[in-house]
Simulated assay, not measured.
Amino acid sequence: MYTRAEVYSPLQNTAVWLAAWLYGAESTDETVSAFADLGGRHSYGGQPLSPLLYDARTHADLDSPEPVLRLVLWGPGQAPGLHAHTPAAAALGPAGAIVLKEADDRFHVLVPSYGAGVEWRWFEEDTRPPEPAWLSPGEADALLAGATREAAVLIEAAGGTRADLPNPRLAVGSLADFYDTPGLPRGVTPRAAKLFSRADRVAAIVETVTDRLGDHTFDPQLNALWRHIRTARMVGVAEAVAEYRRQWR
């Protein structure tokens, strides 16, 4: 299995950029440019990105006390936060989805498909989607910190397994730079940025051991970290969105 599909999420930063644009923290031009950096050409119903942004602004309840936008990630050991047997769930791919809250407890699901570019599909939900974990940034960070300590032990143990890659930590640093680009919009709370950074670091460690070192000795332990990485990304997005509401509304 190719690890990056499980631990990397271009949709994470896409969701934060969309929230920044909805609350006026970033311009349309900067947002469209960031979307392109995060997937190339975006299309929506055969049209460019602009109609998607317009529909998001039309339906978003920017005064909602809960995050108006949340990220849905899923994978082995973690079910998606959507109702099963719905059109949105059927369309859901490995990249995940964005859930947008409208007034009167109505919800919309934006599902991207990544290929040569990004094709978006929009679904309306008749009922409230399943509740996410709603962890605090501190709780998510503590879970991921524990995962980081465990992963650090594993990367040290893997350090001598390949003569052609004698410095796994250097490889981790290189991959961490990949995961960290492109950047986040202005106004992202430091707590969200910290969660994203830690998730990127652990993701780089996991990919280094499994794909770069080719060492599958620790697959059961490493695969268990995927859920913590995804959860940190989802909680970080919720924290960033909440901060935009507090600071920019």
Results as ranks from 00 to 15, higher is better:
residue 184 L to W: 03
residue 153 V to T: 12
residue 170 L to C: 01
residue 62 L to H: 13
residue 101 K to V: 04
residue 10 P to S: 08
residue 75 G to R: 12
residue 245 R to H: 08
residue 165 L to S: 12
residue 193 A to E: 01
residue 144 L to F: 03
residue 138 G to W: 05
residue 181 T to D: 07
residue 11 L to A: 00
residue 209 V to Y: 02
residue 80 P to C: 14
residue 168 P to K: 12
residue 23 Y to F: 15
residue 163 A to H: 09
residue 43 S to P: 01
residue 205 I to H: 00
residue 226 W to T: 00
residue 176 A to W: 07
residue 102 E to T: 04
residue 67 P to T: 14
residue 189 T to R: 11
residue 141 D to Y: 15
residue 119 E to T: 13
residue 156 E to K: 15
residue 203 A to P: 04
residue 139 E to P: 00
residue 156 E to G: 11
residue 17 W to G: 03
residue 62 L to W: 11
residue 246 R to Y: 11
residue 140 A to P: 04
residue 51 P to R: 03
residue 114 Y to W: 13
residue 78 Q to A: 07
residue 30 E to I: 08
residue 2 Y to A: 02
residue 220 P to Q: 14
residue 193 A to C: 00
residue 191 R to Y: 01
residue 231 T to I: 04
residue 225 L to W: 01
residue 112 P to F: 12
residue 59 H to Y: 10
residue 219 D to C: 02
residue 131 E to V: 08
residue 57 R to V: 02
residue 249 R to D: 04
residue 249 R to I: 06
residue 208 T to F: 01
residue 145 A to F: 08
residue 159 G to E: 04
residue 117 G to I: 07
residue 86 T to R: 13
residue 95 A to F: 05
residue 92 L to M: 11
residue 156 E to T: 13
residue 103 A to Y: 07
residue 236 G to K: 02
residue 37 D to K: 11
residue 60 A to H: 11
residue 163 A to G: 07
residue 83 H to I: 10
residue 132 P to M: 00
residue 102 E to S: 06
residue 213 L to W: 08
residue 213 L to Y: 09
residue 240 A to M: 03
residue 77 G to M: 07
residue 180 D to A: 15
residue 232 A to H: 09
residue 193 A to M: 00
residue 157 A to D: 13
residue 68 V to T: 14
residue 173 G to P: 05
